[in-house]
Amino acid sequence: MLTAAKQQGKVLLLSVKYNIMRQMTNRAAFITNITFMILNNATFIIQWMILFHLKEDIGGYHMNDVMVLWGLAASTYGLSHIFFQTAYNLPDLIINGKLDSYLVQPKNVLLGVISSGTNTSAIGDLLYGYLIICIFRFSIVNLLLFTLFSITGALILTAFAILTGSLSFWIVKGDMISGNLHSVLLHFSTYPDGIFKGIIRLLLYTLIPVGLIIYLPVKMILRFDPFTLLLLLGFTVLIIFLAFFVFYKGLRRYSSSNLMSARI
């Protein structure tokens, strides 16, 4: 069991390494992608400067807090897209029968699939996140917490992408649904939760887990709370198991399937 996990980890890292090497074959494009993503994220600083110029407190947040929120969102997104980019393309792989080549490998299919691609600009996101935390709230403890929450966030985000992406095993146009859910999650993740009320707020802590990816962690960076941390870790483990379960359930359908036209 342990050696199997070790082997799996080795393949995963090798896969990510090769992916990044591929992106680096064109050095100029690689560097522009990263720097422009950092600039791209930085434009939002202007937005918040103006908003806080109009009002000092928005949704219970001040400028520095929003920056931490933004930084965490960026590095969470970045981490997930560097390692598991293909989790976001699952619908395409499912619909067009492209999972086949992973099925003949003696490794975990899901891990093999999601680690088979990377996104260069995501490196810019990750860097931006760390830049922000260092500028606005630097301390060793914060840095450690920030890293921990980027990892849990990236895991939840990826699991969420797998869960929604797996819809395509069952539903026509599942790709549109998962794409939309993903963009909903992203849009909410860079605004303070205090501005949302009622049902929406409930949704953000359940069906669309932005609350667990971003809001709770940000609160913990501002004020640490061990109970919330346990809750967060528990949720992370749970959603990962759920993602594996649903994906493999779908995979059985894929293999016994009759849904594809391109697979005869």
Binding site: Y18, S101, Q105, P106, K107
Partner: peptide, 30 residues
């Protein structure tokens, strides 16, 4: 999977930006 090998004519399984040597190492790890 450990006992069989597959080559699907048009679908490439190699990483095109790597050398065959690196590719073989990758598949070895798999």
């Amino acid at each position: 999977a450990y006992k069989i090998g597959t080559v699907f004519g048009q679908k490439e399984q190699l990483w095109t930006h790597l050398t065959p040597y690196d590719n073989f190492k990758f598949f070895g790890a798999i």
